[in-house]
Design a protein around this nucleic acid. Structure first.
Lengths: 141, 141
DNA sequence: CTTTGTGCAAAGCGTTTGCATCCTG
DNA sequence: CAGGATGCAAACGCTTTGCACAAAG
């Protein structure tokens, strides 16, 4: 459970309560969330933790490879605990809903990109935009 | 050639010199570029055109379906003339280079997403991150 | 005790907007 | 001329940073 503490120690970094609280918030909030989301969650535990610390800790956690950041198209950055099995996002342009889908759908694409372009795709930060099931039915155009 | 003028007229909008200059800059700059890039280009023609007008015109051109905007992972938005055949971006995480690749590679993915998730993918704003050919050879890890 | 981490407030950065002025149609 | 378009500068929202203080090792 203390993967965070361990990771920090391993790097000679300090295990502060702020970092622990922020990390717990990340575990609690499943899925993808903004710095503000995390800040709000964190403040319920300790209202004196600052937003700057949240940002600094998120950057730290990215360096430790525990957190990923993604830009889902808007103006804010979305963060998530780095997942074991990589997955992608289906972002609905109508309702803004985010759904995840499994990486193996991309296997054919990865292969083709490697063959045709020599490009090694790291498909862990992928977002696909479009219309989700619900909005397709609702709109029907 | 005056697709812009025509499009503007068709919407009852005004064909101003600023809009024409910005549109020409877009044609001149091939590929993807930021508002600042366009601004710099535009200023060589007329240094009195403001950045605000560039942004406003870019938004207008998007509404006219002549320009697309993409977020390639950084903090800036990238714009491009809308292409006939839609394409995607291979963004190299090492050198930052952007390569384009054709949409039809995604056909299998689109089909699978529709079948499995009922998601209608609009794959015109897609970026895939990874390592380009050159950087793969250079790094070799 | 040394050095890293924190909080606060201010700065940064790309983008948007209010308002007076300009100019297209 | 009337209403859309522009330029300027200020506002905005998210994120980063400088600095003095707190606290981890």
């Amino acid at each position: 459970m203390n993967s965070l503490i361990d990771a920090l120690r391993a790097q000679g970094l300090r295990a502060t309560p702020q970092r622990a609280i922020i990390f717990e918030a990340l575990e609690k909030l499943e899925g993808h969330f903004t710095a503000e989301d995390i800040f709000a969650e964190v403040q319920q535990v300790n209202p004196y933790i600052s937003l700057a610390t949240v940002y600094r800790t998120l950057e730290l956690l990215q360096n430790l490879d525990l957190v990923t950041s993604t830009n889902l198209g808007g103006n804010q950055t979305y963060y998530a605990l780095k997942d074991h099995c990589s997955h992608h996002h289906l972002v609905c342009q109508a309702c803004g809903g985010i759904e995840e889908f499994c990486d193996d759908i991309f296997e054919p694409v990865r292969v083709m990109l490697a063959e045709q372009y020599g490009f090694e795709a790291r498909t862990d930060h992928l977002s696909i935009f479009g219309l989700c099931k619900k909005c397709r039915k609702a709109g029907q155009n």
